[in-house]
Amino acid sequence: MKVKYTIDRATSSPVRLKRRRSRSTMPDYAKMKKPDVKLVILGDMNVGKTSLLHRYMERKFKDTISTVGGAFFLKQWGRYNISIWDTAGREQFHGLGSMYCRGASAILLTYDVTSWQSLAELEDRFLSLTDTASDDCIFAVVGNKADLTDAMAVEQEGEQEESCPASVCPTPPASPSAHKQVHREDAMALYRRILRYKMLDERTSLPAESMCFETSAKTGYNVDQLFETLFDLVLPSIMKKRDDEKISTVDLEQSADVAKAKSHCCS
């Protein structure tokens, strides 16, 4: 009887329920580590999205070219793989945004603290792209290039990075003299409008104070805090996702277990 029982279980294993193999000769491309969760960085071109990601992943500030299409990185965070998408800010690629955002667990809306326009663009152009994101997606508003306006952020600079020669560097030389156009309060106001747009209750959502960051990819100011705060915030959503998957795959096993338990007490 026992043997029979195990056979039953084998035939009902989820593997058998998988879709039939493709008839095509083309392989199922080995997708490397499958990410558990997705983080997307949005924002106008030139605000420093790619630089932020480089700073975080490679711990340095280097020359960038305006991103074409998009790029992504995998970050191992504890037991989880987090994919971080760097999108292109150029108008030309705007249409791809909602696809990148589909199913995202966190979205970083990035602006340049020296450009009021870049903040305005977030609301005008980028916010609607986030409609495809996951229901429990969290938002962060990130003001980059803080080194240009904020003495604090400059001093943060630990070791002098291989700073690009002034002729190549398209941004003005790093000095807190540049005019700060966007204040943190503006960003927080935007954050609250985002919540309203998402029809979320401000009282039950993450507070603006903790979700509005000012960073500098150039000096590294606040960059780790930004990413790591977000990683920690998305963990619950990873766990939920895993649980969901478990429930849908383990079902059969569970019912088999129940059957086993039953047969046991009947015999």
Partner: peptide, 16 residues
């Protein structure tokens, strides 16, 4: 895709 991109998309509409 626009801009001479080759975009990947899964049936769920996600780019992996």
């Amino acid at each position: 895709a626009p801009g001479g991109l080759g975009m990947f998309a899964t049936a769920e509409g996600i780019s992996q």
